[in-house]
Design a protein around this nucleic acid. Structure first.
Lengths: 141, 141
DNA sequence: AACAACTATTGACGACACCAATTATTGCTC
DNA sequence: GAGCAATAATTGGTGTCGTCAATAGTTGTT
């Protein structure tokens, strides 16, 4: 009979849980959670994104995006702007406050990754990251 | 500004989610979920475990173990037996039905892992698994 | 004998993945 | 160009899950 962690899939599941917990604990004092942080990080790379783009790229349900952007707007980290092309869409953009928040919390994020990857040296971390990216595939790119 | 998946921690979080979803989908027809499956797999290796041991080894809250064992008992896959040493404890053991269930679903489990690790060859999978085990550390052993 | 520690259990709460339905708008097509 | 399928954002509901607090029964210690 195979052991509990013979399955890479189950290992991934458990480590994913742990990773999310560490991230959320690290973000707790800011009032945000990992999901909000992911939205901010994505917005920082795209200079404005439709909510459906956020949904597709982050893998969150469209209905979840609504609440996340609501929260970010309340905190002044993001704004909804009307799309000139399509009046159904809203363009979500990062505010200056959001950008400085990202800069301030950047160190905390890398600290979490350090805790998580503890026993691995730099080379192993690179290897792991590359393998995970391969698994992630286009859906999460 | 760093990209969304520059963080190995976030990658792990997302892949853990996906892995759990795949597992649960695969187990759906059996009426069990990943958590039940993990309990069964652990029981198969230990020949009887206290519920607090299940809680510690699997990382699930003690209160969660109660419901999981309830479900497994209803399906006839596991049993609670009184502990001769300590009347507070219950020893959870795998039944014959549970054992045959594990054998029948073993293939489904490896299928999930195959889907998940799709683009990786055998050597890369070994590497990934070893790295993840290192990260997991003693807590998940 | 009294008291702290532990096991299993119950209950509550928030977060979240998932799905269905609605409204406003757009694009297609006949 | 009128009707209709498709789309974007939103609301609401459901079940799972992680977390914590509280309790009853039991054990070990002092």
């Amino acid at each position: 009979m195979r052991g509990l962690h013979a399955d890479t899939g189950y290992l991934l599941y458990r480590l994913g849980l742990r990773s999310g917990q560490l991230f959320n604990a690290s973000l707790q004092e800011s009032g945000l959670r990992l999901r909000h942080y992911a939205v901010l990080r994505l917005l920082a790379t795209t200079e404005g994104a439709l909510q459906r783009e956020l949904s597709a790229r982050l893998g969150y349900d469209p209905s979840a995006i609504v609440g996340l952007v609501d929260d970010l707007e309340k905190l002044g980290f993001a704004e909804r702007r009307p799309s000139p092309d399509d009046r159904r869409s809203r363009i979500v953009v990062l505010t200056d406050e959001g950008r400085t928040f990202l800069q301030d919390t950047d160190e905390a994020g890398t600290q979490v990754t350090n805790d998580l990857l503890g026993p691995l040296d730099a080379g192993e971390r690179k290897t792991l990251h590359a393998l995970l990216l391969r698994i992630a595939g286009d859906g999460l790119k």
